[in-house]
């Protein structure tokens, strides 16, 4: 930084300027200050998530039941595995980043290039995994019925596995057949151009009710978490009652409005927080690519220091740091 900063002060005079009490360059310090403010933004989001969760403490979805998918292992329930893999990828790319910074201190250009390259690959894998996670979450798996009060009713049946009675979820499609309906989706082109509606649900509540009545083994599970920390399963009579009296529409998957796993707020916060974090990762990858090419064309070699790599490194580690917290509060706690 000596080439860009002119030292005007003298060493004897404290107030003469040119002091660096924190012994850190301007750019690095500003990166730290940015990180502090960004950390406060993220903690604001996570605290808001905590607020909403405390508000619905007995009704909140259980993350282990939501994020059970792993690519290429279709139909298996493997909670946490994929997100643990994502966490590991991000920590790993943090390691290659810090190795790049270290190589930069030793002015080893080729090593910096390779470590930066691995960091970028790690970041890309992470962003891709997050996109896949989103797609799976949006698509949903079992489907559910939303009640008039906005609660979610899910379906399942008791199965005996290894001599133990376990409640296993059943997809609505497996016991319901769509009846013929004259209800047509209203599109903008068939009427008022400014009035439209989104795609109609695959089943009506009546279809689901008929399906439920003709399959005596299927029970309804509510959102309420009981004393064992599990969702409450209703009796057969109560199941039919709930669907008949309170059922409003069939939902599958999650979006900003409904969420087949439980409270819509869960989906909203999931999209918002992981989305905001994913955006950080994405911009981190872009900045890393820029610095990567700068290293290749030898900008920092000529500048005789690799502090720029250190600065983007700080940002990259911060993204990893945030993920550690998102991982805990979204998937573990």
């Amino acid at each position: 930084m000596d080439s860009t900063v002119v030292s005007t002060g003298t060493n004897e005079k404290t107030w003469g300027g040119g002091n660096q009490p924190l012994k850190s360059s301007y750019g690095k310090m500003m990166m730290w200050f940015f990180i502090v403010s960004d950390a406060l933004t993220f903690s604001g989001f996570l605290a808001a998530y905590g607020f909403s969760r405390f508000k619905f403490i007995d009704y909140w979805p259980i993350a282990d039941e939501v994020f059970t998918h792993v690519p290429f292992l279709h139909g298996q329930e493997l909670p946490m595995i994929y997100v643990a893999f994502m966490t590991f990828i991000l920590i790993m790319s943090s390691v290659t980043m810090v190795l790049a910074v270290d190589a930069g201190h030793e002015m080893k250009k080729n090593k910096v290039i390779w470590y930066m390259f691995f960091t970028i690959i790690g970041g890309a894998i992470f962003v891709g995994s997050q996109a896949w996670e989103w797609a799976t979450f949006i698509q949903g798996d079992y489907g559910a019925v939303q009640t008039k009060g906005g609660n979610i009713l899910q379906f399942g049946t008791y199965k005996t596995i290894d001599g133990e009675e376990v409640f296993k979820r059943v997809a609505v499609e497996d016991f319901t057949t769509a009846s013929h309906t004259d209800r047509v989706q209203h599109e903008n082109k068939n009427g008022l151009w400014f009035v439209g509606e989104s795609a109609l649900p695959a089943f009506s509540v009546n279809d689901v009710l008929h399906g439920l009545e003709s399959h005596p083994e299927i029970l309804v599970r509510t959102q309420t978490i009981n004393e064992e920390g599990e969702k409450t399963v209703l009796s057969r009579a109560a199941s039919i009652d709930q669907i008949k009296n309170n059922g409003k529409r069939y939902v599958k998957g999650a979006n900003l409005e409904v969420n087949e796993y439980g409270a819509p707020l869960f989906a909203d916060f999931f999209f918002f927080i992981t989305g905001f974090h994913g955006f950080h990762v994405f911009s981190g990858v872009v900045i890393n690519i820029i610095i990567f090419f700068n290293v290749i064309i030898g900008t920092y070699e000529r500048r005789k220091n690799y502090e720029m790599v250190e600065k983007v490194g700080l940002y990259w580690h911060f993204v990893d740091l945030v993920w550690v917290f998102v991982f805990t509060f979204f998937y573990l706690v």
Binding site: L22, K23, S94, M97, V101, G313, L314, L321, F325, T328
Partner: peptide
């Protein structure tokens, strides 16, 4: 979980972000 997360955050900040090598005031 929360304690382990804070431990992880500590090592990421201290060793990956080189907080260990910065001045006490920073």
């Amino acid at each position: 979980f929360i304690v382990l997360t804070i431990v992880k955050a500590y090592y990421i900040t201290w060793d990956f972000m080189h907080m260990r090598d910065e001045t006490k005031s920073l």
